[in-house]
Design a protein around this nucleic acid. Structure first.
Length: 562
RNA sequence: GCACCAUUAGCUCAGUUGGAUAGAGCAACGGAUUUCUAAUCCGUAGGUCAGAGGUUCGAGCCCUCUAUGGUGUACCA
């Protein structure tokens, strides 16, 4: 893999110093037609330096690799220098470096000593998580796992929407129509009902808006009753939401709402006021961003109150002070892109150069869930529905009922998560039950099923002992294609990291699964000749290692039975 | 008005950062199971990469313009 390519490049640079600056390991590409070879070096870019036709360059370079034990053949095909690895050497190299853990240790060093702060999921208090919250949660969690896998120290923050006039509404509604008993039995749904009731009553009686503002004013100014109700609403919501997070394997280091940053927001207002980059416009304190083609960043409203951008400014500074991060990510809908660009630019103008380490990771919206029909789709309902469909498929399986339930839940969750993560972040998604609940083809259950097959074979065959592995037994086409796919692991993980794109790993898992299932069909292990069985088991152990890690990175439950 | 994002097979999407004959899944049709789990595998069919220019040895990918759809555009988050 990489060091094979490096050795090729070194040989070329030695023989042709003129190519020193343009010949790199990254020049290699994978031939579209596998018959051409395993990796290829296009020689077109060398033509201008060497003043020769690409094809004759390739012919010349080819001579450097006469008798090279890494390769079975090196051929020039119309300007491409195509390499075929020695299958035996390659299989040995790929499998050994995975099974020894060298590949993983190498990746783990990349982020060693570095800290990343990630802000995702960001639920609203008193609202049950619904389909609209899924993407930030799932994408954010996967990015956390990617960084973690690469050895970063990651701080996960759930930035709760727990401030603003809507809390005045909630407090008023609870005090007017609410009761303790309903609140403690099913808090979040109950609070939602109260919120809805407030809005319908408000239509009849506009004076309610003032009452809500009054209560929010009290909350802001530390009124004990308002504060304690607000705190309870928050605690109940977090408690309820944690059950859902637990179900899908998501967790956070901090739940910090906007309320947490209120004091700090006051500080930043003072600082901005004193700064030459700010001015008063229409009674509001702003940082003008016209020179950068953006509307101004609003720091204090004309009524004197803070606004979300104030709190985001304060939060960024606070996080930098506390964690001294090397990277900070905000995972939200693409819609908020402008807002974050404004906040970043404002901080830069205020002299906080470290904000260049912050990045907004935007993703497309989920469409077709318009609330006009009142058709909110709650996350729990999606997972429940998926689970019951899975149970139906599993009804004849010989598995104990309680275990079956548990497995079905994990398969349903895998299906929902995968259909979300398998598409590029920026794409909008049309919500479609049929697609969410499909379990065949390129789906989560397909991956889990493939994984179960791998584990079962390893389990049933037993781990090999006392035998020298004969890697030449892994050189048929099916097996070789699988090994080649496995060799892309580092490359795919790194790409997902660079692009902040979990779908890269989703696509890679599909490649692995497809190649494995082809392999599975023609290569038996149990009952096979011992040396062949042993070599294949080694291969599958390596495959299991990367497969499991990729599933974990995407947060797809790992199961060994289905 | 301005800005950002998207546009690839009937549908949903990939396309390893500018390379060889643009690939999968679903849907359709045909086939494979006395087998380590058929939630699998194999085959057939399906394309003016939205359109027009440009850059160069070479463009689905980069630049310009246009079209269509989505989103955002200071006191909501």
């Amino acid at each position: 893999m990489n060091n094979i390519k490096d050795s090729v490049i070194n040989k070329i640079r030695e023989a042709y110093p003129a190519l020193k600056t343009i010949a790199e390991a990254s020049c290699f590409e994978v031939p579209k037609n596998p018959e051409h070879g395993d990796t290829a070096l296009p020689c077109f870019r060398f033509a201008s330096v060497m003043k020769k036709a690409p094809s004759s360059i390739a012919d010349e370079l080819k001579k450097l690799f006469n008798g090279d034990p890494n390769f079975e053949s090196v051929e020039n095909i119309s300007g491409y220098l195509n390499f075929k690895y020695s299958r035996k050497t390659f299989a040995d190299f790929v499998i050994s470096s995975l099974n020894s853990g060298a590949v993983y240790n190498n990746l783990k060093e990349k982020g060693s000593g570095k800290t990343m702060v990630i802000d995702y999921s960001s639920l609203n208090i008193a609202k049950e998580p619904h389909i609209g919250h899924l993407r930030s949660t799932i994408i954010g969690n996967s990015l956390y796992r990617i960084y973690d896998f690469l050895g970063w120290n990651v701080v996960r923050i759930n930035h709760l929407g727990d401030w603003g006039t809507q809390f005045g509404k909630l407090i008023y509604a609870y005090k007017t129509w609410g009761n303790e008993k309903n609140l403690s039995s099913n808090p979040v749904r109950y609070l939602q009902e109260l919120y809805v009731r407030f809005h319908s009553e408000e239509e009849k009686d506009p004076e309610l808006s003032d009452k809500a503002r009054e209560w929010f004013f009290k909350l802001e100014n530390g009124n004990t009753e308002a504060r304690s109700l607000w705190q309870r609403f928050k605690d109940y919501t977090i408690e309820g939401v944690k059950a859902t997070y637990d179900r899908i394997g998501v967790s956070f280091d901090f739940y910090r709402g906007e309320g947490y940053y209120e004091d700090k927001a006051r500080d930043i207002i003072k600082e901005v006021e004193a700064s030459p980059v700010s001015r008063i416009s229409d009674g509001a304190l702003i940082i003008d961003l016209e020179d950068y083609g953006m509307p101004p960043c609003l720091v204090r409203k004309s009524d004197g109150a803070s606004i979300y951008s104030t709190r985001d400014l304060a939060a960024a500074i606070d996080r930098h002070n506390e964690f001294n991060f090397d990277k900070m990510l905000y995972v939200t809908e693409l819609k908020q892109q402008l807002h974050f660009h404004q906040v970043f630019k404002a901080l830069e103008l205020l002299g906080y150069g470290w904000i260049s380490k912050a990045e907004h990771i935007g993703f497309g919206s989920i469409l077709g869930i318009s609330t006009r029909k009142g058709s909110v789709i709650y996350l729990e309902d999606i997972f429940d529905e998926a689970k019951s469909r899975v149970l139906d498929i599993m009804k004849d399986r010989d598995i104990a009922d309680n275990e079956k339930e548990e497995i079905a839940d994990k398969i349903g969750i895998g299906a929902v998560i995968f259909q979300d993560l398998s598409r590029s972040r920026v794409k909008n998604i049309e919500f479609d039950w049929e697609r969410v609940l499909s379990f065949e083809g390129e789906t989560g259950p397909y991956l889990q099923y493939s994984y179960v097959r791998i584990v079962n074979i390893i389990h049933k065959a037993g781990v090999p002992v006392n035998q020298e592995t004969d890697y030449s037994l892994l050189s048929d086409d099916m097996t070789y294609e699988l090994i080649k796919t496995m060799s892309y692991f580092e490359n795919r993980i790194t790409a997902a990291y660079n692009e902040h794109e979990p779908s890269v790993i989703a696509g890679y898992l599909l490649d692995l699964a497809k190649n494995f299932n082809r392999f599975y069909r023609v290569n038996r292990i149990i009952g096979e000749e011992p040396y062949a069985a042993e070599a294949r088991i080694r291969l599958l152990i390596a495959l299991e290692g990367i497969f499991r890690r990729c599933l974990q990175i995407l947060n797809i439950p790992v199961i060994d039975k289905m």
